[in-house]
């Protein structure tokens, strides 16, 4: 027989009435059982809150973010790179971080020439730009970015094309 009860777990003063055959009996609620029930509810709600907090908010409202990296080597100027993360539609306490790295191809190796990290200001919309630069050398260059944020889990990378300088 499935459990049935008129006991109101939200009302500590209520009493449980169990029906068994034709006999009706009143019982005083068990304090231990009652506490366990509330403890379970708190745990369950806590677990759900934990899960919701770790879920991206993009589904909840119109929000978006984008990451990108670029590199340039204009004639006569030093090579430079930029990596950025921009976002909109999140909460006022959200923010993101960008690390950008400028790489030079030197005899079979990608050598990091310069890197920069920028922590974007908190806000429902915002950005985090990281700019890099290095002395001009002929050869191949590229820029890569690493991005983290409070509104997506983990890390996202961005890559500029490999260009010849």
């Amino acid at each position: 027989m499935p459990f049935s009860s008129t006991h109101d777990p939200y009302n500590p003063g209520s009493k449980q009435i169990c029906t068994q055959g034709t006999k009706t009996m009143k019982v005083i609620p068990e304090t231990h059982s009652h506490l366990s029930f509330h403890f379970g509810r708190v745990l369950l709600i806590g677990a759900l809150l934990l899960y919701l907090m770790s879920t991206p908010l993009a589904a909840a409202h119109a929000a978006s973010w984008v990451v990108s990296s670029s590199v340039a080597c204009p004639p006569g100027l030093n090579p430079s790179g930029a990596s950025y993360l921009s976002w909109s539609g999140y909460w006022s306490w959200d923010y993101g971080t960008t690390t950008g790295g400028l790489w030079y191809w030197q005899n079979g190796s990608w050598v990091l020439q310069n890197s920069a990290t920028t922590i974007g200001a908190r806000g429902s919309s915002g950005s985090a730009y990281a700019y890099t630069g290095a002395a001009r050398q002929p050869g191949y260059w590229t820029q890569t970015g690493g991005h983290t944020a409070t509104f997506f889990s983990g890390s996202q990378n961005s890559y500029a094309p490999i260009i010849s300088c």
């Binding site: 993101g96 990608w110 590229t142 970015g145 990378n157």
Partner: peptide, 19 residues
């Protein structure tokens, strides 16, 4: 693992390809 990266930034890596 990318899923484990926190807001404190991990190091970036190059394309890992030859030009």
């Amino acid at each position: 693992n990318p899923e484990a990266a926190s807001v404190s930034m991990p190091a970036i890596v190059p394309p890992l390809l030859a030009p």
